[in-house]
Amino acid sequence: MDTSIEAITATSELKARVESDQLIDYLLHLADNALILGHRNSEWCGHGPILELDIAITNIALDLIGQARHFYQYAAELINQPDVTNRKASPMGGGLEGATEDALAFLRDAKDFKNCLLVEQPNGDWGVTVMRQFFFSTWQYYLYQHLQNSNDKRIAAIAAKALKEVTYHVRWSSEWVIRLGRGTEESNAKMTNAVDVLNQYSGELFTPADYENVAVREGYGADLCTIKHLWVQKVKETFQDATLAFLLPSNDHILQLFGKIGEHTTHLYELLTEMQFLQRTYPGAQW
């Protein structure tokens, strides 16, 4: 882990914020997004359509898991502050003692995860995976661009470092959206289907949860309205190149769930059952 990032500790001013738990929720939201998509991408490892793409999607998975670890570690430090008073909203669903990156990833229940529904969706075919990456990375790119100027120095440092990675993710995924959109009749149909499958989850990216509104108000978060505007522009341009029909971000997913506040599809429950099994089966063991 990057020690320069870890060296930035919470100031007393931040501790005050922690008492509202909103900063912790915001960090968990950022971390969960990265972890869950990283996990999904890692499912491709060994099964990609070409060796080079197998390596590329694994790289992205590694980057995302690395980002998640930075955010979890920061969240854990804040949770472990001795003077945190409001413990009822514990993201651990109980005692707050000894939070770690692993406890946050492996011991929380699905209803405590704050990731967007988009990232928990199953990989589907390669087209869905690439499209999901493009939707998400484009969003994350503009988000981190804002966050690198966050008044929370630790968030700013994590975002600045991750931005280099995400820049590559956007380039890689947009190039593949274009290549596959333009490729063959079959690949164009696959990409059209991918938009169909995923578009219903794109609106949530821009629908703020309470902790995001607080984050903007306090100056450590990013305003989703600005990001939406930039996102639409980028996706529209890319789709034009890819000869794909652009659809505005929609919130019309059938279930009317809001992943950011812990309302998830069954896919996340299944994912966590698998991911958390060792930690749950052997409580307290070191690995």
């Binding site: 490892c45 694994t58 898991i65 670890r69 990156e101 991911m275 690995w287």
Partner: peptide
Amino acid sequence: TRAPSLKRKAILLAKVQDEA
């Protein structure tokens, strides 16, 4: 997908990627 910690997950992922 079942690695027991984030660190182990990252190490294993990087390892399998090395094999590719």
